[in-house]
Write a protein that binds this DNA or RNA. Structure first.
Lengths: 121, 121
DNA sequence: CTTCTAACTAGTAATGATTACTATTTAAGT
DNA sequence: ACTTAAATAGTAATCATTACTAGTTAGAAG
């Protein structure tokens, strides 16, 4: 993976943002620094940065993919407004609420390489 | 929410499937029972069943939304082939692997109603 | 410092999942 | 049975994402 101006700007935007931007949001931010950057370039780089484990993906529960910095924390996602709240102090002993937000479900997803895909290299 | 033949068939398909079907997969299954069911009807019902907390959503890490029965368990998602494996015996003491699958990341997502949305009723 | 080339980019077109729309049908309460 | 809001089939529209192409560039090798 080469280091390009576009890729560096995109990675910086995600690492320095406290929002959970979607691809178009990243595009809008990136255009402030590279006015003629292409939306396709943003999508391509988001995908390669994610494959390289340099950024994370969050699904907001409403058909939108959002991007997040690599920084170990968890998320609360509102089922109504699809707001995403970062959690740095998760406590499983009182999981029914998290700071005045009512918790109705807890999803745990392990990501990695499955047995079959390990054989292919 | 009214009880319709279409909605019942869709809910049954998800509750009786061990796959993690996407919307089109549910549509294909549903057509075996209701040949002229509309794809729009499938999407509409998947959304209303999810809002009613009767089914769950799984994101496969490759821009596809998949649907799952309400049944407390966790998932392993392969970053390469996007296979989804159900986990009923999660053990946090040895989280680096799960049954020969290499675990590289663990996402925990709490879903619910945020503070602001609670006020709106 | 030049040369070389595979990787990358901008811009645009195409794809494909999801939603919107409309006329018609139906569940279920009165 | 009557009524009506909710649901449906079928189709058109939307919009996020990917593919394509000609031109550009990072960075390795001479």
């Amino acid at each position: 993976m080469r280091s390009t101006k576009q890729r560096n700007v995109i990675l910086d935007i995600i690492n320095n943002s406290y929002d959970h931007l979607d691809a178009y949001g990243v595009y809008e931010e990136a255009r402030k620094q590279i006015p003629n950057i292409s939306l396709g370039t943003v999508y391509r780089n988001l995908k390669s940065l994610e494959n390289a484990h340099l950024i994370d993906i969050v699904y907001d529960g409403a058909d939108k993919i959002r991007y997040d910095k690599k920084d170990f924390h968890q998320h609360f996602v509102c089922s109504k407004c699809h707001k995403i709240i970062d959690i740095y102090d998760l406590n499983f002993e009182n999981i029914n609420t998290y700071k005045n937000n009512i918790v109705m479900n807890c999803k745990i997803i392990l990501e990695g390489i499955c047995e079959e895909c390990q054989k292919e290299e």
